[in-house]
Nucleic acid binder design. Sequence first.
DNA 1: CACAGAACTTGACGCTGGTCAATTTAATTT
DNA 2: AAATTAAATTGACCAGCGTCAAGTTCTGTG
Lengths: 231, 231
Amino acid sequence: MDNKGNQINVMQLCVSKVPFFNHLTTKEMRKIVDKSRHRNFKKGESIYRDGDQLEYLYIVHRGRVKIYQLFESGKEQLLRILEPGEFMGELALFAEKTLDSYAEAMKDTEICTIHRDDMQDLMREYPTIAVKILEQFSNRLDKTEKLVGQLSTKDVETRLAGYLLELADEKSSPGIVLPMSKKDLASYLGTTQETISRRLSSFQTDGWIEQKGHRNIKILDKDALFELLSE
Amino acid sequence: MDNKGNQINVMQLCVSKVPFFNHLTTKEMRKIVDKSRHRNFKKGESIYRDGDQLEYLYIVHRGRVKIYQLFESGKEQLLRILEPGEFMGELALFAEKTLDSYAEAMKDTEICTIHRDDMQDLMREYPTIAVKILEQFSNRLDKTEKLVGQLSTKDVETRLAGYLLELADEKSSPGIVLPMSKKDLASYLGTTQETISRRLSSFQTDGWIEQKGHRNIKILDKDALFELLSE
DNA sequence: CACAGAACTTGACGCTGGTCAATTTAATTT
DNA sequence: AAATTAAATTGACCAGCGTCAAGTTCTGTG
């Protein structure tokens, strides 16, 4: 049985990659690996859904996951996208809460899960873990609060410009690749596919960007976009 | 000198009231009190502002504080309101971050401050503190994400109905008192004073609520409001 | 490489809700 | 209780953007 070999493999892949574990010693990490479980999801597959009982912390190791809410009206609100190393289900750590959001693999994705009780133990044993999680939390909260501000005080054009610039900053190159479909982007920015499409077209007409394919955008006039933000 | 007496007083008032300290022993609390400073703010006074260097954790002991963002356009986005026992400035705990929001006392307010370095020490010494903070954090994040969803998928009427019901739930009585001006409520719900006013008027015309004075509302038909949410 | 289905674009139209301005009402102060 | 100020209401107007519907362009799969 290659169970043993499998576990070592998982350790290298999963735990060591995650910011809030990677300061621990190898021995300590092994302890964590013993408590974690590795799972695979195919593109489009649901990882958890509204109404599920939340019992695990999920850590994305490979792939990409989107978290969204779904309303009675059928409208979707995309909350965030998880890249490798990020986690979700953190509410599970404190209470037996019922979920009110959905998590879906955007492409084939590998995930590590750790049960609530084990996480509690780990935090007690290695207090620094809690501090690390806290750090990530505060960044997320920060980002979410900014989104709230944008949603209610800026028009779609401005929000879109802001998003493009943010993306360009991260990659620090004029060519950017949208990490999601325009439909999802619309959901994230609190608008519709159609409006996103119209605004991008007008950006292009103005000579500020150039679109190639469905997800590739080259920024031609950063300053023009930037101007929008402070108007 | 009544410094000593003062400190004991402060301890009882401030630290013991806060959820993430109140599980500690009296002796441990005293240690924390030694590191905290007590401050008073008058109504309307600014506690911190955009651009300030963030160095302290602020714990509200008495009064009420509003946190908001301010945009170039002059628009305000109210993020949340702190009641006694809640805290702000938590980003200070991790990095030397510059603030991008404002905190203002909504009435005469007493606050305890603890310096970042001291907080770091405390968390190392009493790991449970970090876990408690984490708990509050995750609730806030949850609330903020819900707000995002509402802002971008529901119309003002629905958001307002949702807010009123939420408030009624907390107090579990038909008569509710707005914790803020309608102007601030508008800012929180991502709309304008005028629209809030219009919607409340129409609720009243429909016989669903009754307004008395500027901040008192009696809910007459809970079900009608509730219907709006799931349409 | 072709083809099917998904993703995106474009147009026409109407409604929600933002803006500006003028009153009215409530809250505070003296 | 009157006076002053702050908060809220109401009306008129119109722009942004959501909706529905019909095309067009990608893209990944066989």
